Simulated scan of single mutants.
Amino acid sequence: MIQAIPQLMTLEEFLDWYPDGYGRYELWNGVVLEMQPTGTHEQVGGTLAGELFVEIRRLQLPYLIPRQAIVKPVDTDKSGYNPDVIVLDLPALENEPLWKKRSTITKGESVRVVIEVVSTNWRDDYGHKFIDYEALGIPEYWVVDYLGLGGKRYIGTPKQPTFSIYQLIDGEYQVQQFRGGERIVSPAFPELNLTANQVFAMGI
């Protein structure tokens, strides 16, 4: 669920305003949106983050999963996304001008994986965010549609729960989709032992 806050802001003003320690917000073309995810939505995102954290620790990867981070799309100062889960490349953060003071990402190479868990605003995940994450050069984008809400052109017919991994190849996202008992295959986490059904079960 999303609730708009009636004020127009630049990204800098949004970051100054952002209330520290509570609430979850995004900026869309100057409009502040308060994100109000359901409990099951949070279960899916939180458990996925936990699974990836275990992989990071087990393999001693130089990655970080922050509690929150804002992703700034290219060519705009009026938008900033707050992904459900984001995996960052620790060494690359040294080159991020807004990270230390603003926890904001401006470069695609700073991100290993960005994850959006689909809810009723599925058009944003498959549309606007897809375009902006691709343009930013984020190498992997996961769309976790655990309720099968997305349009048929994205998840097929009949609609069913679908786990989509978009991999950046020659500057464009190419998708691989997983359903049922299929093991999720991720270039960033090649040893991840998790099936689509195991992820979808987190939302029950």
Rank of each mutant, 00 (worst) to 15 (best):
residue 8 L to R: 14
residue 12 E to H: 10
residue 18 Y to G: 03
residue 22 Y to V: 13
residue 23 G to R: 00
residue 26 E to V: 06
residue 26 E to G: 07
residue 29 N to H: 07
residue 29 N to D: 14
residue 32 V to W: 00
residue 39 G to S: 09
residue 39 G to I: 02
residue 41 H to G: 08
residue 42 E to S: 13
residue 47 T to W: 13
residue 48 L to C: 05
residue 50 G to F: 07
residue 52 L to G: 04
residue 55 E to I: 06
residue 56 I to G: 01
residue 63 Y to L: 15
residue 63 Y to A: 04
residue 66 P to G: 11
residue 70 I to E: 04
residue 73 P to E: 03
residue 80 G to R: 03
residue 80 G to Q: 06
residue 82 N to W: 09
residue 90 L to D: 06
residue 94 E to V: 12
residue 94 E to G: 06
residue 97 P to A: 08
residue 101 K to G: 07
residue 106 T to R: 12
residue 112 R to W: 07
residue 113 V to D: 08
residue 113 V to E: 08
residue 114 V to A: 12
residue 117 V to D: 07
residue 120 T to H: 10
residue 133 Y to C: 04
residue 137 G to T: 05
residue 138 I to L: 12
residue 138 I to V: 15
residue 141 Y to C: 10
residue 144 V to F: 02
residue 145 D to L: 05
residue 153 R to H: 13
residue 153 R to T: 11
residue 156 G to V: 00
residue 157 T to Q: 14
residue 157 T to L: 11
residue 162 T to F: 05
residue 168 L to D: 02
residue 174 Q to L: 07
residue 175 V to T: 14
residue 176 Q to K: 14
residue 180 G to R: 09
residue 180 G to P: 04
residue 185 V to P: 02
residue 192 L to Y: 00
residue 194 L to M: 11
residue 197 N to S: 13
residue 198 Q to P: 02
residue 201 A to Q: 12
residue 204 I to N: 15
